[in-house]
Design a protein around this nucleic acid. Structure first.
Length: 428
DNA sequence: TCTGGGGTCCTAGGACCC
DNA sequence: TCTGGGGTCCTAGGACCC
């Protein structure tokens, strides 16, 4: 028996989020098959229901479904992250009004804590759903359960069966019906059971969520480790994964891209990596963090079987944490120089700022301020540069950022940044 | 021709400590 | 001859998520 004060979680998940965002600003897409592509127009990362029905899979390379897309006049969009990010924050703000505790789990998902709320939860969540739709145009579904894994599963059911009108509480099922439901859902669908884990489970004849539910906990832990055990316990109604009220401080910041064209030339690579470094540093500063490691990497295309697959990377450590672009950008160039090998065509590259700490000034034990050239006050010059760039739309650049734009990712089907750029407002 | 980007956590193994 | 036990920290790789 569970103890009194049983918890209650809801997962609010936007339906086909990127595709839905595109529809808000282009209503003629309503009812049509829509797909949204990843950066560089590489893969399909979002599909409307109509596109799913055509058999366009999640994550498939775009070129593989181009024929299908043309034959069925599927509407294609490049991804437009400024737009999705802004729409996301609007949706999240509304959700926040429906519970005292909200965890923003991803760009299109929120967990909220409904424990002890004096409402009919189904009605409460129906009105959330209605308000998000009315105020933002984004359709959402809500799954309710006494653990996060169960709320996730309930959300899957809410999305799959229209008769629930977008809200489903899995705890309302009698035990027998709950077992029937588990039998109809593959274990792979459970939150936390990925491809490798489901393959391992299949080898001992665990295929459905019900098989998983009925399995021995010791076997699950041996096979899948503590994470698998947590999923197992949560599926049985024992909460193991708490709501994260405060987002944990991040441990690393990654900025990487696959390039619009393969790059061999050192200066072209340096240009691309400089721009990516500045993106990462902007993020670092916006979180008020500083980094003590920098990783630079460049890769050749692993899908080209006729050429060697080359992964070049190097991590360097700093004696003091740094957060200034005038320090980090030259380090990227220096590190790239160390790893660069001519003669390869690199299709992707990037940098990682790691071992992040709160941005406070720590003295370098090994540098003496005496007998040293006075340091240029890089702090002031780059903060001036940053404030100019904030005001004038990134108009100041480092010389090493300028060159040709061959590296720039493709985005053939990009919609406007309707909500974040004055030049790109929707005109009616 | 054409295959994303950004994260986290866990585990195993090695180096090192007393 | 006979070679413990317990711990930390770091790193690389794997797995998962959206």
């Amino acid at each position: 028996m569970t103890r009194a004060g049983r918890q209650k979680f809801a997962l609010v998940d936007c339906n086909n989020f990127y595709a839905s965002c595109e529809r808000v600003f282009e209503p003629k897409l309503e009812g049509k098959a829509v797909v949204v592509l990843s950066n560089n127009d590489g893969c399909v990362v979002a599909r409307s229901n109509e596109a799913k029905a055509l058999g366009i899979g999640m994550g498939v390379p775009y070129f593989q479904v181009k024929g299908l897309v043309q034959k069925n006049s599927v509407q294609v969009k490049s991804s437009n992250y400024p737009l999705y990010g802004d729409m996301s924050s609007r949706v999240m703000k509304i959700i926040d009004n429906y519970s005292p505790i909200q965890e923003i789990y991803s760009i299109d998902e929120s967990f909220i804590d409904l424990t002890g709320l004096p409402f009919n939860l189904i009605t409460h969540m129906q009105s959330l759903r209605g308000q998000v739709k009315e105020w933002t145009g984004i359709p959402v579904c809500v799954g309710i359960g006494r653990t996060k894994v169960l709320a996730k599963l309930a959300n899957h059911i809410a999305k799959s069966y229209p008769r629930f009108k977008g809200v489903f509480d899995i705890d309302t099922l009698p035990h027998q019906r709950y077992c029937d439901l588990l039998r109809s859902v593959r274990a792979r669908k459970l939150w936390g059971i990925g491809r490798q884990s489901s393959n391992k489970l299949a080898r001992i004849n665990i295929n459905s969520s019900y098989d998983f539910y009925r399995a021995d906990v010791g076997i699950i832990e041996t096979l899948l480790g503590v994470n698998g055990k947590r999923v197992y316990q949560e599926l049985r109604g024992h909460p193991c994964i708490p709501i994260e009220l405060i987002p944990p401080t991040r441990q690393q910041i990654v900025s990487s891209r696959s390039f619009g064209s393969d790059l061999s030339d050192f200066d072209e690579l340096k240009q691309a990596l400089t721009v990516l470094t500045r993106k990462a540093v902007n993020k670092l500063n916006s979180h008020q963090l500083a980094a003590t490691t920098l990783t630079v990497f460049i890769y050749t295309n692993p899908h080209k079987k006729d050429k060697p697959c080359v992964h070049l990377s190097k991590t360097i450590g700093m004696t003091t944490a740094i957060q200034d672009e005038s320090q980090i950008i030259p380090l990227t160039a220096k590190t790239l120089r160390l790893i660069y090998e001519p003669g390869h065509s690199f299709y992707k590259g990037g940098i990682v700022l790691g071992n992040l700490t709160k941005n406070y000034r720590q003295q370098d034990l090994f540098s003496s301020t005496q007998n040293e050239q006075p340091q240029i006050n890089s702090d002031n010059s780059s903060s001036a540069m940053q404030s100019i760039n904030r005001r004038f739309n990134e108009s100041l650049k480092y010389a090493s950022e300028i060159g040709n734009d061959r590296w720039y990712p493709r985005a053939e089907f990009r919609s406007n940044r309707y909500t974040t750029s004055w030049d790109e407002l929707l005109t009616v």
